[in-house]
Simulated assay, not measured.
Amino acid sequence: MVSAIAFFGAIESGLLFGLVAFGVFIAFRILDFPDLTVDGSFPLGAAVAATLIVLGWNPWLATAMAIAAGFAAGALTAWLNVRLQIMNLLASILTMIALYSINLRIMGKPNVALLGDETIFTPMDNWDLPYYLSAPLLISAVVLVVFVLLVRFMTSETGLAMRATGVNSKMARANGIHTGRLTILGVALANGLVGLAGALFAQSQGTADVTMGVGTIVVGLAAVIGGEAILSTRTIARWIFACLIGAVLYRLVIALALNADWIGLKAQDLNLITAVLVTLAIVAPKMKQNLSKRRRGAQ
């Protein structure tokens, strides 16, 4: 059984990584841009927010600067691809590697603690709710705002042009769409969301670490693919919502697996669990199709 603290902790983590899933969705699904920058922009957002908060900045302003930093990192990756004609995957790897050193420069050390410093979660100390309930509520509000804004953007003229760029860039250019600019904007927006997730994660956990971004892209992909396997993606709103549900369910399954004594899994098995979940998420839609074909054939 999972305790209440572990359950709501998984919900909180799932909501945070839902923001990562939104970013991965934009890069991988909308733009068809394999972007590994998120492994660097996640700790970048955490590093910027934590460092500025320690320096006395308002936590919301520090979070905004973390979003801007992630946005700049994504823009750099796309610029390397669009302007310098570096393959998109390689461009993202180059930026990710560079961000490791940049994050160390920003923090001045491998990690920064936020113990005793004011964060966006500090006002919740006055709420008549335990922290493991109040923190997910605040993060839910942030995720809801991002979800609404993202859906509105993707259904706007610019968003439709961006989606057209990802589906068929040649046809988009033939219709007068500046595909290069939209690619830079899309990848920048994706990493801005990941930077926001990193900033919130650092404030939630009370620390920012240079290695906290390792495997972030895998978690994001697991959320996107898992959500698509569970929910319908007929509309852009459902598609984006599916990413959020995938992130929350992923963290719940992880919590269940690690807290179930009869399974015998430990914290070091986290990557193994992730690999299994991603594999199941990829195979599940194909299994559904084969099962439906067999049923039709039997009829």
Rank of each mutant, 00 (worst) to 15 (best):
A4S: 11
I11Q: 02
I11S: 07
S13A: 11
G14I: 01
G18Y: 03
F22I: 06
G23N: 04
F25T: 09
F33R: 08
D35F: 13
T37S: 12
F42E: 00
P43K: 01
L52I: 02
V54S: 06
G56E: 05
A72L: 15
G74D: 04
L84Y: 07
L84H: 08
L90T: 13
A91L: 05
I93D: 06
L94E: 02
L94I: 13
T95D: 09
I102C: 07
M107L: 08
P123K: 03
W127V: 05
I139E: 01
F147D: 05
V148S: 03
L149W: 13
M154C: 05
A164M: 13
A164G: 10
S169T: 13
S169L: 13
M171I: 08
A174V: 09
A174P: 14
R181L: 14
I184W: 02
L189C: 11
N191W: 07
F201V: 08
Q203W: 04
G206A: 04
V219F: 14
I230V: 13
I230A: 09
T235R: 09
W239M: 13
I240Y: 06
C243F: 02
C243E: 05
L249G: 08
Y250N: 00
A255I: 00
A255N: 00
L256A: 15
N259W: 01
G264Q: 00
K266E: 10
A275V: 00
V278N: 02
L280T: 02
P285I: 11
G297S: 12
